[in-house]
């Protein structure tokens, strides 16, 4: 088997005002071909106005096995949320 064509992750901005969103991947020899392939595969019906491609092996991801430790503070630090603080109703909306 010859060398494998690299894998690229594809991100698309559906329209201005929204951020780019991951939608899948394509194989391509370089970034120029990756953009072309991404356009053909993922935007045949006006799904986007802008495409990013990133080589898949360039992405570093958090480990799902450690997600409890990594994301724990969101649950224990409840004082980060507005509802933690008692404000009398008379004060009005705050």
């Amino acid at each position: 088997m010859t060398q494998e064509t690299p894998l690229w992750e594809v991100f698309i901005r559906p329209r201005n005002g929204l951020s780019h969103r991951h939608c899948g991947s394509v194989h391509a020899a370089d970034e120029v071909l990756a953009l072309q392939a991404a356009r053909d595969v993922y935007t045949r019906r006006g799904e986007g106005l802008s495409i990013w491609v990133v080589r898949s092996d360039q992405i570093t991801a958090s480990d799902p096995q450690t997600k409890d430790e990594t994301f724990e503070p969101t649950a224990s630090k409840i004082y980060r949320h507005p509802t933690f603080y008692e404000i009398p109703d008379e004060v009005g909306n705050m």
Binding site: T2, Q3, T5, A28, A29, D30, L33
Partner: peptide, 9 residues
Amino acid sequence: VREAALAHA
């Protein structure tokens, strides 16, 4: 084509 594209890259 695949080989040429990789060589070019």
